[in-house]
């Protein structure tokens, strides 16, 4: 760690971690084909993976940038419907189809996010929350009124392209990108705007431009997750992207803690696994299974009252922290400072 020149050692660490993780997943997938591993566990892992992409992208806006946006599910809908439409209409199959449909999902959601951001960031605070929620509702309502997307009945017959492996690849790529962003100048500007927007602006930061930039990135990655989701479920309806989905994402985000990439992983994992455990645990009585629906909001309320920053607010697991800047005393000069 003392060697300051070795700061890209994150890349090496991350590469090894990814390779090991992907190998394990490939083995798991093979085993599950023979029935040696329960398909159900793979399903849970896939759902966790997709939600981590969603929640960590929401974290960029609600955590790092500190704005309260309430329309994330809308961007997910953009991505999901773009991917669904392209994967059924285009004359492609297999790998090229995945790349094209997911790429288009990212771009479509990003463009919509950018356009919405242009309007939404004319407001701040509570009004931003309202306006983003309004756009979420409008997106859902628009899809309901487009017949070629299935209207309110939903979009059926989407080919199943998404597997645990592809979700893992997307998730790793997302985290590679987010890690570098939040530990770069870009990420520092976001936090600066959150901490004191006036001081940030007086340092020459064009606040609205930066905010819209973050919003676009977050929307694009929500689009990616939406695309994966559509090609995993094979059936999507507009109603599954309304504000209830946004709320669920918020619950997972604040459970894990904002402003922390590790927090998003932890929040999603804890939430989904505890929901599933609760379902299994209570399965002896079908009426009790429904009890989990009131347990999850209770958990959220209790966490908010007792631990407002969530499980990992503004803190990172060690392996997601950048290497500490180490500069030997004798290397500190005043040359550049004094011009």
């Amino acid at each position: 760690m003392k060697d300051y020149s070795n700061s890209c050692w994150f890349k090496i660490r991350f590469g090894i971690f990814s390779a090991v993780l992907l190998c394990i997943i490939l083995i798991l997938q093979e085993l599950s084909k023979n029935g040696w591993v329960n398909q159900y566990y793979l399903h849970i892992l896939t759902v966790i993976g997709m939600n981590v992409i969603l929640v960590s992208s929401l974290n960029l806006v609600n955590g790092y940038l500190g704005e309260f946006a309430l329309g994330h599910a809308g961007f997910m809908a953009c991505g999901a419907y773009t991917a669904a439409y392209l994967s059924t209409q285009l004359d492609l199959t297999g790998f090229p189809a995945i790349i094209v449909s997911l790429g288009a999902a990212i771009i479509a959601a990003g463009i919509i996010g950018y356009l919405i951001g242009l309007a939404a960031f004319k407001t701040v605070g509570d009004y931003l929350a309202i306006i983003t929620l309004g756009f979420n509702m409008i997106i859902v309502n628009a899809i309901q009124n487009i017949d070629s997307l299935g209207g309110p009945r939903g979009f059926t017959g989407i080919p199943k392209y998404t597997s645990l492996f592809s979700v893992a690849v997307c998730l790793l790529a997302t985290y590679y990108i987010f890690y570098h962003l939040v530990n770069s100048n870009f990420g520092r500007l976001w936090v600066a705007i959150r901490e004191n927007s006036l001081a940030a602006e007086l340092m020459g930061i064009n606040i609205n431009q930066v905010k819209n930039f973050v919003f676009t990135i977050a929307a694009a990655f929500a689009g990616l997750a939406g695309g994966l989701w559509a090609e995993y479920q094979q059936f999507i309806t507009p109603r599954s992207f309304d504000y209830i989905k946004t709320t669920e994402l918020l619950v997972m985000l604040y459970l894990g803690g904002t402003g922390s990439l590790s927090g998003s992983i932890l929040g999603v994992t804890v939430y989904i696994i505890s929901m599933e455990l609760l379902r299994n645990f209570l399965s002896f009585n079908p009426q009790l299974v429904e009890m989990r629906m009131i347990v999850s909001p209770l958990i959220l309320i209790i966490i908010m009252i007792t631990r407002q920053s969530g499980l990992l607010g503004n803190r990172e697991w060690r392996w997601l922290r950048p290497a500490e800047a180490y500069i030997p005393e004798e290397n500190i000069t005043h040359d550049s400072v004094k011009n």
């Binding site: 100048n185 520092r188 936090v191 600066a192 959150r194 901490e195 940030a200």
Partner: peptide
């Protein structure tokens, strides 16, 4: 910027002369 480290407070001021752009950042 209260919730940022002292060093990061200073580093924020470098945003105009960071010397790298978006693409170089996300690709690391």
């Amino acid at each position: 910027f209260n919730q940022m480290t002292v060093l990061d407070n200073i580093k924020t001021a470098f945003h105009r002369r960071a010397g790298y752009h978006f693409g170089e950042t996300i690709l690391g």
